[in-house]
């Protein structure tokens, strides 16, 4: 088996796909550099990310599958699922070699798997649209921290930009240590030194306005008042909001 190691970017992955075709490698396995689990019997090659090559591959794919299909591939990539690259590679090979569009051939393992992974990523993206809780900082930025299961913030940027066009905001992924920042014009990627006390309730007044803390209370209050006790159904509640998301929801922490 030939292991192709790439830098973890989408362009890097596409460059690896290019490399497979250019060198007619049939037994390729594409892997992020960080997982350097080299074995004795495999050949290893390091892929140098090349935007032009990446573009050519993407263009080739565009001729064979729809915009929706391409989006599914990109979403699968963001899933960071181990070995997703190889499922994507299988999908791309099949798409490129086939006369017909293959993206709805759900009896094909790679097609169905990409569909399922993309759906999971979409769900996580949607959860972030829903569960982000902005807090107004003393310097006038609406700030939120999250730890999504998948690397979905690139997918969320557009939604938040359209919605909060007149306020500065940051959504910060604590797990992946980067955030998206809207500066009233564009959304950009940022890395910040995040203080470990920013999510501690007792320290809130250090970072946030008094009004902010009051609105969190009002919201928590509203959340309690709108519950109907005689219909209590915690199983359903937890199904909709799995516990791992609770720590970022102010209504669950007041």
């Amino acid at each position: 088996m030939t292991i192709l190691k790439y830098d973890g970017t989408f362009e890097g992955f596409l460059s690896a796909v290019f490399h497979c075709y250019e060198n007619k490698i049939d037994d390729a396995s594409i892997l992020k550099k960080v997982y350097s689990a080299s074995t004795f019997f495999d050949t290893e090659e390091e892929i140098i990310t090349n935007p032009l090559k990446a573009k050519r591959v993407w263009k080739g794919i565009s001729k064979k599958i729809s915009a929706e299909g391409k989006k599914k591939l990109y979403k699968s990539f963001l899933s960071e699922v181990i070995e997703v690259e190889n499922i994507m590679l299988g999908y791309i090979k099949r798409a490129l070699s086939s006369e017909k569009n293959i993206e709805t051939d759900f009896t094909d393992y790679n097609v169905l798997t990409i569909d399922k992974i993309a759906k999971k990523v979409s769900r996580e993206k949607h959860r972030m649209d829903a569960f982000v809780r902005f807090r107004l900082t003393q310097d006038g930025i609406y700030f939120a921290t999250v730890e999504p299961d998948f690397n979905v913030l690139p997918l969320n940027a557009d939604h938040f930009k359209k919605r909060y066009a007149d306020q500065k905001w940051i959504i910060y992924d604590l797990k992946r240590k980067y955030g998206i920042y809207y500066n009233l014009e564009n959304v950009e990627m940022v890395t910040l030194e995040i203080s470990s006390t920013i999510n501690q309730k007792s320290q809130a007044s250090q970072y946030f306005t008094i009004e902010e803390i009051q609105f969190q209370q009002l919201w928590g209050n509203y959340f309690k008042s709108s519950n109907i006790v005689s219909r209590k159904n915690m199983e359903l509640h937890v199904k909709h909001i799995p516990k791992r998301y609770w720590k970022y929801l102010s209504e669950k922490n007041c």
């Binding site: 829903a130 939604h159 066009a165 007149d166 109907i228 219909r231 209590k232 915690m234 209504e251």
Partner: peptide, 17 residues
């Protein structure tokens, strides 16, 4: 402020689900 052109979003769920 705001955009309601997409699908609906449930921002939270009460304990009655």
């Amino acid at each position: 402020l705001g955009n309601s052109s997409g699908m609906g979003i449930c921002h939270s769920y009460t304990e009655d689900g």
